[in-house]
């Protein structure tokens, strides 16, 4: 499941694993999303080289597979950093200073939302509601949910002293 297992334990992309994942899940009705999630869980992103393999095994055109991958905000096309912060940008979090947290975090990490720090440590992403709207600002950090976050807490959670 995407978001549940980012960080350092990600495997390098390989064709054999992709084939195995597709074989394992193709029995599902409408298996494509489940396959893409399984790939992203394993590698942190969907490698371009996976698309023709999926298309062949599912009897779809490459354009169809590409169309699905690009439609959904979850699916990354590049490997993420060792840590992924998904910061909520929706209204309830805005009402308690969520945008200020976003601006400060972007400034201190020196990246914009959607980017990874040059040292490959942190990827910052925007999400739109985590269902923690009474305890905002909210963020998922490496798949763990946090409430009442500020820039300091988020930086701490991905700092070398705390996280591997």
């Amino acid at each position: 499941m995407s978001g549940a297992r980012q960080s350092s334990r990600l495997a390098e992309w390989d064709a054999g694993a992709t084939t195995r994942i597709v074989e394992d899940l193709r029995h599902l009705d409408g298996p494509l999303l489940a396959i893409l999630h399984a790939l992203q869980d394993r590698h942190g992103y969907i490698d371009d080289q996976a698309l023709p393999i999926i298309a062949d095994l599912l009897n779809l055109s490459r354009a169809e597979v590409h169309g699905v991958v690009s439609f959904y905000h979850d699916f990354r096309r590049r490997p993420p950093g060792r840590h992924v912060i998904k910061l909520c940008r929706s209204e309830a979090c805005q009402s308690v200073g969520g945008e200020r947290v976003a601006r400060r975090l972007e400034a201190s990490l020196a990246i914009a939302a959607g980017e990874t720090t040059p040292d490959g440590r942190v990827t910052l992403e925007s999400v739109y509601c985590l269902g923690n709207c009474a305890l905002g600002p909210a963020a998922l950090v490496d798949g763990k949910l946090y409430g009442r976050v500020d820039e300091k807490l988020l930086r701490h959670l991905v700092s070398p002293e705390v996280a591997a």
Binding site: S2, D29, G67, V68, F71, Y72, H73, V127
Partner: peptide, 23 residues
């Protein structure tokens, strides 16, 4: 089944498309 970060997939027919593995 798991969605993939698309608000529009809460709309019922988009949701059905998504469950079928499509955009």
């Amino acid at each position: 089944r798991l969605g993939a970060g698309a608000y529009i997939c809460g709309e019922e027919t988009a949701l059905l498309e998504s469950l079928e593995g499509k955009r």
